[in-house]
Design a protein around this nucleic acid. Structure first.
Length: 460
RNA sequence: GGUACGGUGGCAGAACGGUCAUGCGUGGGCCUGCAAAGCCUAUACAAGGGGGUUCGACUCCCUCUCGUACCUCCA
């Protein structure tokens, strides 16, 4: 498949049997929000798609568990950094398991790789790319000629635009910390003095440790391009002397009602909140409804549109389960739609177009169900394809208990008898009971199909 | 100020040098005992402004303009 590479500013072909991906995960100092969810869901879909196409994928996603914000929070709560990060790692997994995100192959933490980080800095020092001051150890940006290639920035412009107070002890304002001296919790001994790692170094040390020097995809949110990924790229290539990731893949930002998510203004939607409101399927649909590289706006209207589409998918799924039509033979159009789904995914993970194909299959199916041409063979052929797509997209129709399904079938038979006897009040009462179970009845010509509706709180 | 990305119908959002997807919404209809769901059908002056290239541009080029993001907190 092709994936857009931020570094080369062009799509790059990715045709290898094994794809190694390093995804910059979250800093665990607070609950995850919808922006994190989008990035992680996009990579989850990428992984699922590659694997469905027979590619083996190794996904490594870090937790940043040493950071000023964690320390600040720990102080505010008279707690420790370890307690804070453990708490939010736990809530991360709770949130993202519920979002149907398949677990990565490993989730390395900065605090568990201090030795690797120290080794990494040692090499940089030996190569003359790092130096110490009274505050810490710094990477010398001037030692890396390609600095700025990823973010398309020129070093002289960066300096003039710097908006942070300059640390005079650094040789160059652009230089960034590899190791910060500090005796506070958390801190570790190092050849240069007690302290903790800088932000970028953990990803360099851990990605190369787990995936090698030159792995296929390095990803994260667009906001990480500068400085995080630029700095990672500089220090890693300086250390290894080899090219770093082959493709840099960046996911666009999520805005809320047209504005940047900012904790300071309370303009944030946590994963917990959106899951409670909309459930996993609609959130996933929302996250992949536009192209991953572009920004997407979280608004109630858009989520409602995704809800409407999800309802159609549910209807289709149960129509397929109950298919009894007379005519049969797999519809020709199905093959074309499957091809356009795969073509869309192949072309830079164009989930928007892939969803178009997915929903055109659903529309076609509901059409056949409506005019009675959805036979068993048709249904099976369609269901096979739809199941495959849903698996790739991570959409899941909730499972039902056998007893519940039997109960529904019994009630429908009872209702049918009442209807035949034209006892509509009784029939409607049974329908109310069924509705109360979260099940909707679709009365077709002479037969009734039922649909289990996922309960969506936002709908009420 | 610099850099990047973008401005397509009421909203969202693709592709493409010539026929302007698709979804949501809205109007009408079908089905139904009623409803729901679903289907059918209609709807939309659609391309920020101005130049240019071309037989022909939403699609390529230039320019202006507006928006968003980033410029060491950030997914």
């Amino acid at each position: 498949m092709n994936i857009f590479n931020t570094l080369s500013n062009s799509k790059k072909r990715l045709d290898v049997p094994r794809v190694r991906i390093y995804l910059c995960g979250v800093t665990v100092y607070d609950d995850s929000h919808i922006g994190h969810a989008r990035t992680i869901i996009v990579f989850d879909v990428l992984k699922r798609y590659l694997e469905s196409a027979g590619t083996s994928v190794e996904l490594v996603q870090n937790f940043t568990d040493v950071d000023d914000k964690i320390i600040k929070r720990a102080r505010a709560e008279s707690s420790s950094a370890g307690v804070i990060s453990e708490r939010y790692i736990t809530s991360y997994f709770r949130d993202f398991d519920e979002l149907h995100v398949i677990r990565a192959d490993s989730y390395p933490k900065a605090t568990e790789h201090i030795d690797d980080i120290v080794e990494f800095i040692k090499i940089l020092e030996q190569k003359g790319a790092a130096y110490s001051t009274q505050n810490g150890v710094y990477f010398a940006v001037s030692s890396f000629s390609k600095y700025g290639a990823l973010s398309k920035k020129k070093t002289d412009e960066l300096q003039s635009g710097a908006r942070v107070e300059v640390d005079d002890s650094k040789r160059d304002p652009l230089d960034f910390a590899l190791w910060k001296f500090s005796g506070d919790d958390p801190s570790w001994e190092s050849p240069w003095g007690r302290g903790r790692p800088g932000w970028h170094i953990e990803c360099s040390a851990m990605s190369t440790k787990y995936l090698g020097e030159n792995f296929e995809i390095h990803g994260g949110g667009r906001d990480l391009i500068f400085p995080h990924h630029e700095n990672e790229l500089a220090q890693t290539e300086s250390c290894t002397g080899a090219p770093f990731a082959k493709i840099w893949m960046h996911v666009g930002m999520v805005t809320i009602d047209g504005e940047k998510m900012a904790k300071s203004t309370g303009n944030v939607r946590s994963v917990r909140h959106v899951l409670d409101m909309w459930g996993p399927n609609i959130i996933r649909l929302f996250c992949i409804s536009g192209h991953y590289s572009k920004p997407i706006d979280y608004t109630e209207d858009l989520l409602c549109a995704d809800l409407a589409r999800w309802r159609q998918a549910e209807t289709c799924y149960f129509e397929l389960l109950h298919a009894r039509g007379q005519k049969d033979g797999a519809p020709d159009a199905l093959g074309e739609m499957v091809i356009s789904f795969d073509n869309a995914m192949q072309d830079d993970l164009n989930t928007h177009l892939a969803l178009s194909a997915f929903f055109s299959i659903i529309k076609m199916t509901n059409q056949m169900a409506a005019d009675g041409t959805l036979g068993r063979n048709n249904a099976d052929a369609i269901k096979t394809e739809l199941d495959r797509m849903m698996k790739i997209l991570g959409l899941v129709i909730p499972e039902m208990e056998k007893e519940e399904m039997q109960k529904i079938d019994e009630l429908i038979i009872q209702r049918e008898e009442m209807r035949k006897e034209r006892k509509f009040n009784d029939a409607d009462r049974i329908r109310d009971v069924i509705n109360g179970m979260g099940v909707e009845l679709l009365d077709h010509d002479g037969r009734t199909v039922w649909v289990k509706r996922e309960e969506i709180r936002a709908e009420n």
